Simulated assay, not measured.
Amino acid sequence: MLRDLFSKKKKYATIPSDQVKMDIPEGLMTKCPKCKTIMYTKELKKNLYVCASCGYHHRMAAHERIDSLIDEGTFVEFNQDMISKDPLSFPTYPEKTNADRKKTGLNEAIVTGQGKMSNMNVVIAVMDARFRMGSMGSVVGEKITRAIEKAIELNAPFILFSASGGARMQEGVLSLMQMAKTSAALKKLDSAGGLFISIMTHPTTGGVSASFASLGDYNFAEPGALIGFAGRRIIEQTIRQELPEDFQTAEFLLKHGQLDKVVSRLEMKQTLTTIIDIHSEKFS
């Protein structure tokens, strides 16, 4: 009898794992890297790519971010057709940028333009880490500079979302020069009495964090964003000390006075609208 108990056939047949993979469309589900919750990608998108279980902020494409902030039908993009050249004849650089254009549908690592936010005119720039890890080459710096100049011309607030691995090594010193160029343009905006709101998202590092991303009249960041210049390991080797676990996170920077506020993506539009409304006399 005992033998019969263990030799009974299973009532339900198992489905091979390969078959399961074939039946579930790719991209239908997303697993949160922080809390490991598995959720419908469609539901995650509705929640602006913020995990409903733990609040983790997943990466967001530039146009999706713009759609979440700018009033429908009001966004006009600037300099959409600007494309990086290969000034140093760097091996495989053209092939890599071409591949990123096909993958992302973008010509560069930033989207700039103007539109209305809660019926108020703004100029906005959004970096996209899917394109060369959001690295800052000549075109990125030029598009930011032109957007700042447009904000001065229109007498509108300038809002910039950064997401970058830093300066683009394939363009050498030309990439590093964008740090000075964008910073000089922001000085012109400040002298003109303009408003610059900088929001750092995950990650914002290197030459971007050391230049325009840190020069806002308001400096914000999304929760958990990695923000810093050099890498953790390099800093530890240099100072010969172990760094805190939360070092270079948005929360660490806020605690040490390097940010004005850590703002959830779900509260971002309301926060920005409130700040622009406070300064509305500048733009009337």
Results as ranks from 00 to 15, higher is better:
Q248E: 13
S89R: 12
G73Y: 06
A192R: 09
I70V: 15
V139Y: 04
L69I: 05
K269L: 01
E251P: 00
D4E: 15
L253E: 01
E72S: 12
L189S: 03
D100H: 06
K96P: 00
N219G: 02
P203C: 08
L160M: 13
I38R: 00
G166Y: 05
E77W: 07
Q270N: 15
A109Y: 03
E72C: 03
K187D: 14
G194A: 08
A163S: 08
D100A: 12
G73R: 07
T273L: 09
S162T: 12
T201K: 05
R265M: 14
T271E: 12
T92A: 10
H58D: 03
T204K: 01
D260I: 03
R65I: 02
A62K: 00
G113D: 06
M82A: 12
A225G: 01
S84Y: 11
P94A: 05
A61Y: 09
I124K: 00
I24V: 13
A156F: 07
A230K: 12
G105F: 02
P25G: 06
K45Y: 08
D86A: 11
G134P: 04
K46N: 08
A99Q: 12
D4Y: 14
I239E: 05
I83W: 12
G115P: 04
M82I: 07
S214P: 04
L160Y: 04
T41C: 00
D217F: 06
F78R: 10
Q80N: 12
S84F: 10
F158W: 06
E171R: 07
G73C: 11
Q178R: 11
L259D: 00
S89Q: 14
R146Y: 09
N219Y: 00
F220G: 00
L154N: 08
K46E: 13
P203A: 08
L195T: 03
S89V: 10
K116N: 15
F90C: 07
V262E: 04
P87G: 09
P94I: 02
S280T: 06
H256E: 08
L189K: 03
V139H: 03
L5N: 14
D128Q: 02
L176C: 07
L28S: 03
V50M: 02
T41Q: 04
R146M: 11
D23K: 13
M177E: 15
F6A: 12
L254M: 08
K21Y: 10
A52H: 13
M133T: 07
G115K: 05
M22R: 15
H279P: 08
M169R: 13
D260A: 06
L243W: 03
S211M: 05
A52S: 14
A180N: 15
D100F: 09
A250W: 00
A109M: 05
F196L: 03
F158I: 02
D100S: 11
H279D: 09
G113F: 01
L186C: 02
E77P: 05
R232M: 11
Q19G: 08
I275P: 00
T238P: 03
Q80F: 10
K96G: 00
L106C: 04
S209G: 01
S138T: 13
D190I: 13
E171D: 11
G206E: 05
K116R: 14
